[in-house]
Write a protein that binds this DNA or RNA. Structure first.
Length: 259
DNA sequence: ATGGTCGAACCTCGA
């Protein structure tokens, strides 16, 4: 691995609505890699040029209207792979993987689930199982590997502004927490929590009800790393600045620096 | 209080 490496992840909630903000953020922070979720655009309409102008080559897995992931990099991307192990050609676009500077990177957008009482919640739990199988069959827990993105689950009380109000509800339900934990049992560590064991920081705030202004948020975006990288995390942050902009995404970028 | 607000593509859905 070529060191140091700076890797970021950002659910942009529509790349076309956010392209100027994302390009500006890339210019300010200059990560080696930026993983994007909810690009909400077909591959032939992705704004590649705007990211190339600030130095990034982008590989995409998009669809019309919903979902969509992309990896932007200042360095060559190799071994690009789209989708979960059992995805058919019409599957929702929620996973893209690439190798950059010797680091294997998986960019994930986990289904929201809608409500714990609906079949979509079962689909969310199944997605976590399928993500684990994808790791088992395609990736190596012994190597330098990053799994980042929007996981749509707060892992612990410290990751929720009002645990009492969220307990048993979507984004903070024990079943989805266990499902995510089984993915992490592959051999992944929560970089932000490792460096900041006590800090209450969020990565997502509902657009409604002035939730950001009142800091009523959840930490549901993560950068997970394997044991080969966990001792080498020098910085793990959530950058709330883009959430303060006019017309922001409802998420904030999360980032790590490894050396 | 089961509200509220976004993006994308339609006149509603998914989050």
């Amino acid at each position: 691995m070529v060191l140091p490496v700076k890797i970021a992840s950002f659910n942009v909630n529509g790349i076309r609505a956010r392209i100027a903000s994302v390009a500006s953020w890339l210019e300010r922070h200059e990560p080696d890699v930026l993983c994007l979720q909810e690009t909400k655009v077909e591959d032939d309409e992705f704004p590649h040029e705007e990211l190339a102008r600030v130095g990034y080559e982008t590989r995409v897995a998009g669809q019309t209207g919903y979902n969509g992931v992309a990896i932007a990099s200042r360095h060559p991307l190799t071994d690009v792979k789209v989708g979960l192990f059992d995805d058919g050609p019409s599957a929702e676009r929620r996973l893209i993987a690439a190798t950059v500077l010797g680091v294997r990177i998986l960019d994930v957008y986990v289904p929201n689930g809608k409500s714990v009482a609906l079949p979509s919640f079962v689909e969310k739990l199944r997605f976590f199982e399928r993500l684990r199988v994808t790791l088992d069959v395609s990736e190596d827990a012994a190597r330098e590997l990053v799994v980042c993105g929007d996981f749509n689950v707060a892992r612990a009380e410290l990751d929720v502004f009002d645990p009492g109000r969220f307990r048993g509800k979507l984004l903070f339900h024990p079943e989805e927490q266990r499902a995510l934990a089984r993915v992490l049992d592959f051999g992944l560590f929560d970089s932000f929590r490792q460096l900041h064991p006590e800090e209450r920081r969020y990565s997502w705030w509902d657009y409604r009800g002035g939730d950001f202004r009142s800091n009523r948020g959840l930490r549901i975006d993560y950068v997970f790393v394997t044991a080969a990288l966990s001792p080498r995390i020098r910085r793990a942050e959530i950058d709330v600045e883009p959430r303060r902009e006019p017309k922001p995404s409802d998420h904030a970028p999360v980032l790590v620096e490894l050396d």
